[in-house]
Design a protein around this nucleic acid. Structure first.
Lengths: 187, 187
DNA sequence: GTCTATATGTGGATAGAC
DNA sequence: GTCTATCCACATATAGAC
């Protein structure tokens, strides 16, 4: 069964946004990629703003599921933190891509207010979850010198995002590894 | 004495790039801001790509001078790190602005290769300087638990940049403070 | 060095037939 | 739900007069 057109559009748009930025792709690009005419895309997403909202909504749900899955498959705080770092590392795709949240954060002025609010909720969700990870690592001893899980969590997400941005600018994933070594050396 | 036209254009473009992104301003905006016609801008900067190179070149020199000045006016590693954090904090301008390096990093696909190379050199310069700061803080005891200055420096810049990006998305400078608390609590 | 006028391309979006 | 055809706004850039 082929993916339906709407999902195909979301997939194409997400890949495009993550590699070229929200301003870096047009309905013409999606049209060529998915194989329908520009005008037809407006039937599924009346405006590009509506498309951005749908993308961010799906991304929130995806990452929420990822965090839940990590909790299931990894038991120590250290293992969970490693899984999160790995997730951000692999989203780099060799230095050619960012996670959707960073990509959208960098296109602020082109996005509707609704997406800005979604980004806020997304960040809160990830940081809250990361705090539980550091708290677990503090308790089970799998993350060294955790003084304050809330402070650690507030720093971890910006660090992962800044590391992605740096690695992507120079298309060099080693810059990501170098930036997050401050975390991985404690595991 | 009025600033010459070329400098006025650079100033206007830098402010615009930092608040709205490189794709977020046009020659029409500069024209309105500086008070000359669009076509006249091409006399000073033939292409927008050439303008971006000039902006990044000036920014490199500015930050180099800032680091040198910090070395002169602050003696301990801790005081120097505080000064760097303050610099990135104030570049936020209440959550409405980014430093030029982060802004350009987020507009990668619109920039010429020369600017990408300039960003690489800029980042190397800042990270090398930051390493000397952490090394000083380790020696003079003004920064707590420094195990490896190189690892600290490789993380500090992405953290500052990620913190700026987060604070700017929600136009909330408190998010910057929250993210860098992992550093400031050690001072 | 600055101007008017214009070229040329591309963006998102709409109307209306099928 | 998809199409053709078209609109309108705006972008960067150029030609040539003053």
């Amino acid at each position: 069964m082929a993916t339906d057109t709407k999902t195909a559009l979301l997939n194409s748009a997400e890949r495009a946004a993550r590699t070229r930025g929200f301003d870096g792709f047009s309905y013409a690009d999606l049209s060529a990629d998915v194989g329908i005419r520009k005008a037809s895309i407006h039937h599924h997403f009346p405006t590009k703003a509506a498309l951005s909202v749908a993308l961010m909504e799906r991304y929130y749900d995806d990452l929420k599921a990822v965090c839940d899955q990590i909790d299931v498959s990894h038991k120590t705080g250290g293992a969970r933190l490693t899984a999160l770092i790995d997730r951000y590392r692999s989203a780099l795709e060799g230095g050619k891509s960012l996670c959707l949240c960073v990509s959208f954060s960098t296109s602020r002025e082109s996005l509707p207010e609704e997406v800005i609010a979604q980004i806020g909720r997304f960040r809160e969700m990830i940081i809250a979850w990361t705090e539980t990870v550091f708290a677990a690592g503090q308790t089970d001893g799998s993350i060294a010198h955790v003084a304050n899980p809330a402070v650690e969590a507030a720093a971890a997400l910006p660090l992962l995002e800044g590391a992605q941005l740096a690695a992507r600018v120079e298309e060099n994933p080693a810059l990501f590894d170098s930036a997050v070594q401050i975390l991985t050396q404690r595991l």
